[in-house]
Simulated scan of single mutants.
Amino acid sequence: MTKLAVVTPSFGPDAELFAQLHASVLEHTTDDTVHHVIVPPRDRALFGRYAGPRCRVWTEPELLPRRYVRVPRSGLWVNTLRPWPPIRGWVIQQALKLSATAMIEADAVLIADSDIVLVRPVEAAAFRAGGRLPLHRAEGAVHAGMTRHVRWHQVARDLLGLPDAPPPPLHDYVSSLTFWDPVVVRAMRARIGQATKRHWLDAFTSRLHISEFILYGVYVDEIHCLDDPPSANTALCHNYWDRTPLDHDAALAWADRLNPEAIGMMISAKSGTSLPVRQAAVRRCAEVAER
């Protein structure tokens, strides 16, 4: 069993971003760390260049039961046992992270989106406290105006067989870079099966609105570690979430604010920031990390 694995869902349009992430995984993790990338079948050849001892390329169908079928020329899937409503690709992507993590034999899994770049060495053991991984938990950060987050909390509780969510504020567990424990994910999937009397995947994908991160966080805090919740860590990643592109000067100024505890940086792919500007920010973050 390896100590750490990295899991990244990706696809063709993010191939250049993934290349930066994977290079940083090779640089900042130990030689036994394997980067698992999950892609649509059409992109298997594009990402196949990275396949080797430290990168495993999975296609989506390899991690799903055969009853899950992609609808041609759409971003939708169907569960042929219950084909309506169809399943959004975003929900399938979340389920794929859970499937991959549960399958991997590792002490810890680092979930990293394609637009992440690691900037400091990563050893899961360094983050464990009392033998447990930290949880991305922004305490009380979900307010009543964050309607999607509030709904995600209720869906998580429904799947886990918990009472209705209390009124906000609620914790926010959503992050583009976070540690998951495969043992916890396997136990969480079993809990969903017990609570819903369905296969965990069928119950998960039947929901139109869901967050895998909030599901995991609620399970850890309110079931798995109810009497002694793990420590919170919201500083793993230096994030730029805005939809406005960064220019060169703004990107460097942003990079200069890298948190001393951050192991990664993220400029959202949805920001439209150009690749040269992004690369300049990566270099500056690396410089800051070495100080």
Rank of each mutant, 00 (worst) to 15 (best):
A250M: 05
T2E: 13
W90V: 15
A106R: 02
T234K: 01
V174D: 14
V174P: 04
A289V: 07
T244N: 14
A269Y: 08
L133I: 02
P72S: 04
I104R: 09
G161W: 15
D14T: 00
L4Q: 02
E222M: 04
M266V: 00
W241N: 02
V142G: 03
V117S: 00
I104F: 03
M103A: 09
G131N: 08
L76G: 07
P86N: 05
S175R: 09
A203D: 00
Q94K: 03
A203P: 10
D181I: 03
A124W: 04
E16V: 08
L63V: 11
R44M: 12
R44G: 05
H36I: 13
S10H: 05
P167I: 13
R291E: 12
V25I: 13
D228L: 11
I267S: 07
Y240V: 01
P121T: 02
I192F: 03
T147D: 15
V25P: 00
D172K: 00
T205W: 06
A165Q: 11
R137A: 13
K197F: 06
A235C: 09
R283E: 14
P134K: 05
I38F: 09
A253C: 04
F18N: 06
I210M: 15
H199E: 13
V220E: 10
V122A: 04
V25S: 00
R157M: 06
D228K: 01
E287V: 05
W58V: 08
R243E: 12
L98I: 00
D113Y: 07
W58I: 08
V37T: 10
A165R: 11
E222H: 07
A100I: 02
V155M: 02
G48V: 01
I104T: 12
L133K: 07
G145I: 05
R198Q: 15
S268N: 15
V282N: 07
H199Y: 06
L4D: 05
S206F: 02
V142D: 05
T2C: 09
H28V: 04
M146A: 15
L63M: 13
H171K: 06
H238R: 03
T8W: 03
R67D: 15
R148H: 12
Q20H: 10
R284G: 06
V7L: 14
D14L: 11
A5K: 02
T273R: 10
R73P: 02
K270T: 15
G217M: 10
L4C: 10
A23C: 09
L162Y: 12
D31K: 05
R189I: 02
P61L: 11
L215H: 10
V78S: 11
L252F: 13
G193S: 13
A45Y: 10
D249K: 10
I192Q: 07
P41M: 05
R257M: 10
I92P: 08
V117H: 02
L215F: 01
W200S: 09
P134I: 03
A253T: 11
P230V: 03
H248P: 00
G48F: 11
L177R: 01
L81M: 07
K97A: 01
R283N: 14
A19P: 01
A286P: 01
L64K: 01
S274P: 01
R191G: 06
Y68C: 01
V78Y: 03
M188L: 15
A286K: 08
W241S: 04
R82Y: 04
I87K: 06
V39H: 07
A23D: 15
V218E: 11
L98A: 13
G12C: 04
A255K: 14
P134H: 08
C285V: 08
H22T: 00
N239A: 13
P121A: 07
